[in-house]
Design a protein around this nucleic acid. Sequence first.
DNA 1: GCCCAGGAGCATA
DNA 2: TATGCTCATGGG
Length: 240
Amino acid sequence: MNSYNVYRNLLSAYGPQGWWPLLQRNSWPGYSQEGYHPGVYSLGLTPNERFEIITGAILTQNTSWANVRSSLTTLLMNCSFGPEYLRSAGHTELAALIRSSGYYNQKAKKLKTTAEFFLQRGAANDTPPSRKELLAIWGIGPETADSILLYAYHAPVCVVDAYSMRIFNRLEYRGSAEEGLWTYMGLQGKFHDELPADVEVFNEFHALLVEHGKRYCTSRNQKCSKCPLNSECRFVEQNS
DNA sequence: GCCCAGGAGCATA
DNA sequence: TATGCTCATGGG
């Protein structure tokens, strides 16, 4: 299944998603109360806005965004996402602030190690770190690294997540047949091959896959009859 | 009560 | 390289 066809189909069905949400801008024109900004991509980010995205990317690991937003609101009131605060805060204090995101002991440690990395880079934070540097940080894996590169630095990198795997495994009916399931790097390579190297396309594509995974391609009780991709999905074909 | 959510680290084989 | 386990809250 061609990723660009999927992208165009989902964009047509759902429209621009307004990622990555920025709570700090929730009173700006074009921004929703929750910080979404559909169709607005290219405004520069302040250091604290960039670090809000980095913080959110870590807190949302295996966690719903509603839980993360609650933590981000608390952090915004306490430190406005200044990384100096995350470094200096006590573990127990920080863990309490991000409690609603779950895994709060692990994530408190992840936030501190990440804050330390970016504080040491200092002025170099205007340019993106390498993917390898990000992966070397304790608490940052492939998806979080790519989310930081794409959404905090506008680098042309595709983000793959559990939804992407589920959707493309189903579209191609992988796993139940002779083909193996998609891996992170395998699916990212496919996306990079098939999509135009455009930051706005990559931005929307990942967000659209998340929306699609929530609305129709759910883990169970999937809603195939109303799915905008059902005419080209081998999972539907095999189960009808 | 169970399952899932915008994953990653670590031990084991 | 590839599984399996752990981390943890909050909504459906």
